[in-house]
Design a protein around this nucleic acid. Structure first.
Lengths: 252, 252
DNA sequence: CGCAGCATCCCCATTCCTTGGTATGGCACG
DNA sequence: CGTGCCATACCAAGGAATGGGGATGCTGCG
């Protein structure tokens, strides 16, 4: 009865109050859907410092040891495929998503030997902020519960959202506020326009554009345009979808 | 009967054979779920490559005219919120996701007047490749079909995947790649450092920093530092945590 | 009404960025 | 052992950004 099941499990996941509780409820969800294992990882985008991410799983110990010992995370084809698919995918479809190297096939073979036969993985990305994936896996003698993949898709996404909530905390209101005009000027700056070009676009003087950007910098206590645009993106004053597709929309 | 409904509609969406067919099936899906309108947009991030995006919708004509006439795409709060949530969200929850300016509220008010009362929007990103969003909307006298939001979540994601399939095809073009040094220089640029400051930090000549940034701009076919940093963030070359280490540690 | 906030415009001096070049050494791969 | 890629370094010119002034008019709010 997927309907009741979905509602019950999704409720549990969204109500998870800490990471160990999230572990339990996602584990239970994986069993109820007909899977044998699960793994959830959630990473904040960070290139310099140590990764402060989440890794919950109930994979066999042997696999976890191999995975860590050989640092397989960096060459995991499942992770790579997460960057290539908007929806969840079954592991057996990996070759349709990414080019598989010999090492990739080897890695999957080792997994199969250790009890991870096939899986269904849901990946999510928030540009500039975080990425995560949630996998539901079956043992060798079984096959993926086809009727449950859509449910897995949902619950996996909810689990990732929960992991994010428990990791980064609630959205903190930005310390500053921009006016509409300031935001507009910052947007065009992020689109790569100069003050002069922006002044033409907005139909105002170049000096005014400079002034708006000056005010925006002062408010956020920043001293360069690039930092200002990064900051505006971080705060949600402007969006990625606003920056890059504007040109083809404008040209017709 | 959400179960049959979901299966039937998801089948139609995944089988869509061209964009106009996708339009029909998503439109039908929105009606069956209890919505009055839908809008789907899907954008590729490769500006120099195939310059194609998708915009399908059945919003009122008046709204489309206003939207284009005032270039509202650049200040659409719904699109900005897509960068801040891993799951779909109701428009009424926008203030919890992003800071709302006066212009934002005005925009939503105009939408309401033209028949777009509330909506549920699903956003998806593939780092370095594409972004999209799919909205399901109800008219003024109605409210969101609460029991259908999870279904909308699923179908919206499938519709985005279909849009991607029909746009980029099976072969994904190779993304732009930065060298380590280029990424490092871009990162310090996003942090607001000048070329000279960066040269001190990295222990190399200022000219070399300029050179790395020059190469990075050439690779991504961009012409300004601000656009370069936005692009690097979007592609996941750098992350917010790299730039503003104080942000996510702020509240917990 | 007064006042704060916003949007608009202008000037100037200094610094920084962008674009076009050239050039050397290291390293990997076929 | 050449070829390509990367990191490094330099030069020159023109355009753009930054930070410091100042100024006007409008709107909303107590």
């Amino acid at each position: 009865m997927p309907l009741h099941l979905t509602e019950e499990l999704s409720h549990d996941i969204t109500q998870a109050f800490d990471l160990s509780n999230l572990h339990s409820v996602v584990q239970r969800a994986s069993r109820r859907m007909g899977f044998d294992h699960f793994a959830l990882n959630f990473d904040l985008h960070q290139h310099h410092a140590s990764p402060d991410g989440v890794l919950l799983h109930d994979y066999p110990d042997t696999w976890a040891q191999v995975y860590v010992a050989f640092d397989l995370a960096g060459q995991d084809p499942v992770r790579r495929a997460c960057d290539k698919s908007l929806t969840g995918f079954a592991w057996r479809d990996l070759p349709h998503l990414i080019p598989m190297t010999k090492g990739d096939r080897q890695m999957l073979a080792i997994g199969r030997e250790l009890g991870l036969a096939d899986g269904y993985t849901i990946g999510r990305h928030l540009p500039g902020e975080s990425s995560g994936s949630c996998s539901f896996v079956v043992r060798a003698e079984r096959s993926l519960p086809q009727g449950m993949l859509m449910v897995a898709e949902l619950l996996g996404a909810l689990a990732l959202a929960a992991a994010r909530r428990l990791t980064v905390g609630p959205a903190t209101p930005p310390p500053v506020r921009f006016t509409d005009r300031q935001r507009e000027c910052v947007l065009w700056a992020a689109r790569g326009k100069t003050a002069y070009e922006t002044s033409i676009i907005l139909g105002i003087s170049e000096e005014t554009v400079i002034q708006h950007l000056k005010m925006a910098r002062e408010r956020s206590a920043l001293h360069s345009r690039s930092e200002l645009t990064s900051f505006a993106l971080l705060c949600g004053f402007i969006g990625y979808q606003d920056i890059f597709p504007w040109w083809w929309r404008a040209e017709r």
